[in-house]
Design a protein around this nucleic acid. Structure first.
Lengths: 340, 340
DNA sequence: TTTATTTGCGAAAACGTTTTCGTGTTGACA
DNA sequence: TGTCAACACGAAAACGTTTTCGCAAATAAA
């Protein structure tokens, strides 16, 4: 058991002052070569490393980034997380993660916890409940305190900060047009409840595409599935009672559920019914047939978010940049569940 | 912009000493009710919160736990992570995550980075390269410095610390016996390279089960797939050239790959060939048929690991407990890909 | 030899807490 | 009036750094 060594320990042992040790290790010109060599050798031998906490206190910066995500067991968020970690790590930052579990209370508690000095800035994606309640005072307060925040994916126009979003609208439109160009007429949408603004954008893209191609919008071709509930029966009913030849699902789970139910009902995918999902995760890649899907480039999104945050944190005393919103262009990955 | 307020600010404003403010906020009996009320009101109004960094420096504990995992875009690790986060959060700890990316270098760098005061203890799962090179001096040094470590899943007997593992051997055996009791004779194993000790344990379980039932072990019924490579063709070849009626796969991806190839080859799952995988993730749950799999109870594993670590960290001056290895009992979830 | 300049180092403040110890004031009691 | 507690508060150290400033001694210039 050899505990960590401090500047004070080195100073005492070598009979010099703490300041001398500190300067010597930073190769200051103030210190003679002899003394520097002696101190460096000693420090190296005892594997001296400066204490991060003391540095944080002194410098008023922790080199930690707080990341708040609604769920970690979720392909999209993990890829974003990987992007954040990758970029931040390269820049010498560590990541403190908290999971809000889609609850505003946990979101608030965790952010307040971390905001008291533990982190220099936040990257977050809003919880479902936060979006539902449209309640952002916790974010506003932190911004007020001068703590920078970057929102990604699940953002809101209610607060002003840097953001990274997907072009949901356009890509949903592109997906629907992919259906249309293959001859589909009765195109369904399987989505989540309204307060998820990302789903809303996708819905608009869906509607826009239909309108642009003079296809009548049938409200009953839009299936809204409740969050976190068994919904197989709703889906089954939907496909039994509606004449559908293509379906756009706003996430991967919905897509695979629809496909499996559609197949059970005796339809062929993609010949009878085509399917496009969102998120290019393992489900889409390993299903039979493989699912045509929207790649959201989570890793890129994470990197961009981290870059926005770190840039802002490190500009500190230069000119204040206006807030940016970066748009990541999703891409449609065409596979077997749709007709080319 | 209203920056964070400190004890000093309150003291100056209310014309008392810093000590008085500190004591008043902790409701010390030393301070008169009047003064306390005044200070508390002021603190509340300005939303005073103690600075975590200063507290860490003073208390020599950060209430942060370092978690090092090889990969985050991976169902098993994310569930473990969720368990860790859940338990730690309840106990007032934050999680700093680093991803080793299966590289020993990143593992070492990240751990040394965090060990300099940023965290009170580690929870980690060894990277592939660390296991391959059998190199654990970085862990030993940290333990030597008095930093507690808990290993989970990918552990090693080379170092002494608390551990949480799965009963790989037994559950693999149970899986194989499930095949045998359904009448299978030619049972294959699809596994990873040897240095993954978890795969090795599973292999032993497989071998044990065969021996126990007097089934001859055929080395060519064991398919070893390289890590991180396209291996569809290897799998195809394997099932074309071998007479197999059941296959145990050491992870979910292998299971779904095998199933899709088996089906493409014209076999029926489970009637011609039964499949059992490891990891109860979305792939197993949403495939057709659903895959019989070994649930590894990642969340529980994470909670246990966090509990072991926190207990050890908080015992500090009481009697030193011997190191424990907790075994999590996996369970076989029987679904459509195997015959009951 | 005296004065000026460089060289090499230490003292101390600062970051924001907590906590021990000391001290002045008040009131009670003899 | 003098002694003693109780009360209410402040000073200072400590955690481990960095950095500014000051101050000696050594060297250079006069």
């Amino acid at each position: 058991m050899k505990p960590k060594i401090t500047l004070k320990d080195i100073a005492k042992e070598l009979d010099v002052s703490i300041s001398t040790v500190s300067k010597a290790l930073k190769n200051s010109a103030e210190i003679s070569k002899d003394t520097k060599d002696k101190i460096k050798a000693f420090a190296k031998f005892y594997n001296y490393r400066p204490n991060n906490i003391a540095l944080s206190l002194k410098n008023k910066r922790t080199k930690n980034i707080g990341v708040i995500i609604p769920d970690i067991v979720h392909h999209f968020f993990t890829t974003v997380f990987r992007g954040i970690e990758k970029y931040a790590n390269k820049k010498g930052y560590n990541i403190i993660v908290c999971i809000s579990d889609e609850s505003i209370e946990k979101e608030v508690i965790n952010m307040e916890m971390l905001a008291n000095g533990s982190i220099d800035g936040f990257i977050l994606s809003l919880s479902a409940e936060t979006q539902l309640k449209n309640e952002y005072t916790h974010l506003k307060e932190l911004l007020d305190q001068g703590i920078p925040i970057v929102l990604f994916d699940r953002v809101t126009s209610e607060i002003e900060c840097d953001k990274v979003v997907l072009n949901h609208n356009e890509i949903a439109r592109e997906a629907v047009e992919h259906f249309i160009s293959a001859g589909s007429k009765n195109i369904a949408l399987v989505t989540t409840e309204k307060y998820f603004n990302v789903s809303e954008s996708r819905r608009y893209g869906y509607l826009d595409a239909l309108e642009a191609h003079n296809i009548k919008i049938e409200e009953n071709l839009i299936l809204t599935l409740p969050h976190d509930m068994e919904n197989d029966s709703l889906i089954t009913e939907f496909f039994q009672h509606n004449k559908v030849d293509a379906v756009l699902c706003v996430n991967e789970i919905f897509a695979i559920q629809c496909m499996s139910i559609i197949q059970e009902l005796g339809f062929n995918v993609p010949n009878d019914i085509s399917i496009i999902g969102f998120t290019d995760g393992i489900l889409s890649r390993f299903s039979v047939p493989r699912i045509t899907t929207v790649a959201q480039h989570g890793e890129l999104m994470g990197e961009r978010a981290a870059k926005l945050l770190i840039d802002r944190m490190e500009w500190v005393d230069e000119v204040e940049e206006p807030f940016k919103t970066e748009v990541i262009n999703a891409t449609l990955i065409k596979r077997g569940s749709s007709i080319n």
